[in-house]
Nucleic acid binder design. Structure first.
Length: 693
DNA sequence: GGGCCGCAAACCA
DNA sequence: TTCCATGGTTTGCGGCCC
């Protein structure tokens, strides 16, 4: 079977009566709702629509590179002696038995996946779309297609113009993330009832550890899944699919089996797992994508998870230790069973695609816009970074990155633009269709830290004035309150924190009106997050007090009508995050600061010049001066919060970080382990540790 | 020569 | 006419330092 596939792959380079068969796209993979699709026809149309384009040429280049990699690995395989193979097989067996020893069948995980989420939400908002082929996205790119459209071969990540060729009646609906976020929040309220620590991996997917609730209610996992799906439907009008398994990797695979609107339960039983995994195609595993599948199939003839174990010796021979370990664990059906702790974000980026141009003035303008956007995001999060990465996509779709690490941490658009311009200049002349900017290496320890350690921080100052009483937190300190609401997933916090969603919920929503959910008639935020905001402000702002128990839509009709009534104009929090900060600063200012010693923050040098930033404002500019003071106060507050955030997290995760460091250095040691020498590493076999499975 | 850091590229969801 | 945006992760490689 593997050989046959290799033949097929090899034929791609030669002339053929069916050249489209050699154009490997992701569009012909088996996907729920795509049964009965004429795959050959889809492949031919995709090929014909793409042929000759720059995108197509770049895809050909990439594929040629993969083929080269495959050839090189085959050559390495061929060089292995019988003794080598025996050695690596022993190594694989040992690793398999060690991995088997780590198997944990004590937890029950449930993966929920909303069915064609964006498309379903759009249909809910506009019932006229029901039963018609429809795609959410644009002529350039489709985000989701409904099941009617999938029957034509239309699917997510496909360019709209190809989709229209496949299905001329296809209706295009533009994306509306506010809508999706709103419905996502409704689903999460349901998830929270089953697992307060559930892990959302995107707007439409989540993992729940249902071990405890199954025990408490003496009910089996299938019944829980059934009940959860019914509740989600009652609350939102949307259907979802569920998978239950002993770990997240398996639960995710299971949720795909009876999609849409179905579920599959894999019992926590060794034999059941091994039987299930034995014939499972490797592509079903999260983390194994098009390229990995291609390589494993064409080099080793690995098609199913079971093959991973059978070819374990070769896998150990040719891949790095961590990569081989992942592949072998896939063969055993192992996955994560713990609930991971909070992860800090490591970078912030912005990128934009535009009509390809080599016009330097235009490119510079794009860079300016991106620098502004990135700076705004950085300041919203209260972060500074010292590694700036410029990403470019040329008009021929070649992607380049250019990075520089600075001595100092930056976040202002001026600084970002200054360094980004230098990076871009070095690439000119060039015709580009995308520019991106990314900042990383954040200053966790330095954000908001006072330069003079003897100087009180603003938080100290506020706390020293018995702010804790005013803030009314049960822990009695601002730091504790911030800590609780952002990082504790306790009864006051409906939403989980995970590597994906922490940004949406814990960084932005707190202060960013643009991320606030829909509001009801009384301008009461429906989402619990807004409730948290109310809590935080409660002692300071009566308007938002007592809004923590916000109305839940009783049915999806309510949800829809609220949604339809609520357009952006009805959202009261329309000010920028900085304005929001200023409001907070003003409130704090009224309570604690304005009557006091402002010089803790800034002084007017010679009664004219700001001691912090140097801006000059005459004494007669009273209002402007106050605004300026407010600005610095807000800035300071934001930094203080960030400091608490990072410190708190650091304290909580000191041990896990140590573990990480240990494992990293272990990996580095492994890299140079003599046994690893001679193995061919390939670029992308890393994915397992990036996943939450 | 090993450890560490930074850069560039690639893959994946 | 037209092929996204964002963020995480791994890996190889090269430079620097001890």
């Amino acid at each position: 079977m593997g050989e046959k596939e290799i033949e097929k792959g090899d034929s791609s380079s030669g002339d053929s009566a069916r050249p489209w068969q050699s154009y490997h796209t992701v569009y012909t993979n088996a996907k729920p709702g795509m049964d009965g699709v004429d795959k050959e026809k889809v492949q031919r149309i995709v090929y014909e629509m793409s042929k000759g384009s720059k995108y197509f040429e770049n895809e050909q280049r990439k594929e040629a590179f993969t083929r080269q990699k495959i050839e090189s690995m085959r050559a390495q395989c061929a060089k292995l002696t019988a003794a080598d193979i025996s050695h690596y097989q022993t190594m694989a067996n040992k690793q398999i038995s060690e991995l088997e020893g780590t198997r944990d069948l004590s937890r029950v995980w449930l993966h929920v996946d909303m069915d064609a989420f964006y498309a379903a939400v759009e249909t809910l908002s506009n019932p006229l779309l029901k039963g018609k082929p429809m795609a959410v996205g644009s002529m350039s790119m489709i985000s989701t297609a409904n099941y009617e459209a999938r029957r034509f071969g239309v699917r997510a990540a496909m360019p709209g113009f190809i989709a229209r060729k496949l299905c001329p009646e296809l209706i295009f609906v533009p994306t509306d993330f506010k809508k999706y976020t709103y419905f996502s929040d409704l689903t999460r309220k349901v998830f929270h009832k089953y697992d307060p620590n559930f892990m959302a991996t995107s707007l439409d997917e989540a993992f729940l550890d249902i071990t405890d609730i199954c025990k408490e209610r003496v009910i089996n996992s299938g019944e829980i899944a059934e009940e959860l799906r019914t509740t989600v439907y009652e609350e939102t009008g949307l259907t979802c699919s569920a998978g239950v398994g002993p770990n997240r990797l398996l639960a995710k695979v299971c949720s795909d089996i009876n999609k849409p609107n179905g579920q599959f339960v894999l019992p926590n039983d060794w034999m059941a797992v091994m039987t299930f995994i034995s014939s499972l195609p490797i592509r079903k595993i999260g983390g194994i994508g098009k390229v990995t599948e291609h390589i494993l199939r064409d080099v080793f003839g690995i098609n199913t998870c079971e093959d991973m174990l059978q070819k374990g010796g070769f896998v150990c021979a040719l891949f790095s230790h961590s990569t081989a370990e992942f592949f072998l664990s896939v063969g055993l059906g192992l996955g994560k069973t713990d609930t991971p702790q909070v992860k800090l974000r490591k970078s912030i980026s912005n990128e934009r695609t535009f009509a390809a141009t080599g016009d330097e003035a235009l490119l510079h303008q794009k860079l300016c816009d991106l620098a502004d956007m990135l700076s705004a995001d950085m300041q919203k999060e209260g972060l500074s970074g010292r590694t700036l990465t410029l990403k470019l996509k040329t008009s021929s779709f070649e992607v380049r990155t250019r990075a520089m690490t600075l001595q100092q941490y930056i976040c202002s658009s001026e600084d970002i633009l200054k360094y980004a311009s230098n990076l871009l200049k070095a690439e000119l002349p060039v015709s580009l269709r995308l520019i991106g900017l990314r900042l990383s290496q954040f200053n966790e320890d330095k954000v908001g830290a006072p330069s003079d350690t003897t100087q009180k921080t603003l938080t100290d100052f506020l706390l020293s004035r018995d702010t804790s009483r005013k803030l009314g937190g049960r822990n009695g300190s601002l730091g504790a309150i911030i800590d609780d609401h952002r990082f504790m997933n306790d009864t006051e916090t409906d939403f989980p924190i995970d590597s994906h969603e922490i940004y949406g919920y814990n960084g932005k929503d707190l202060l960013d009106s643009n991320h606030l959910p829909y509001l009801n008639d009384n301008n009461h935020a429906i989402s619990n997050k807004a409730g948290e905001m109310g809590k935080i402000h409660e002692p300071l702002n009566n308007e938002t007090a007592n809004e923590t128990n916000l109305p839940e839509p009783k049915s999806h009709q309510n949800a829809v009508s609220e949604l339809l009534e609520a357009d952006s104009s009805s959202v009261p929090f329309t000010c920028s995050s900085l304005d929001e900060e200023n409001k907070r600063a003003n409130l704090l200012d009224d309570e604690a600061v304005s009557t006091s010693n402002q010089s803790e923050l800034l002084m007017w040098v010679n009664d004219y010049k700001c001691s912090l930033c140097g801006i000059e404002l005459p004494p007669s500019f009273v209002e402007e001066r106050q605004e300026h003071f407010d600005f610095h106060l807000a800035e300071r507050l934001q930094k203080e919060e960030s400091l608490y955030d990072t410190r708190t997290i650091k304290q909580r995760h000191r041990f896990s970080q140590k573990d990480n460091v240990a494992s990293q250095s272990k990996r580095k040691k492994q890299k140079t382990c003599p046994k690893d020498k001679g193995r061919i590493p390939i670029d992308a076999f890393f994915v397992k540790s990036s996943k939450n499975f």
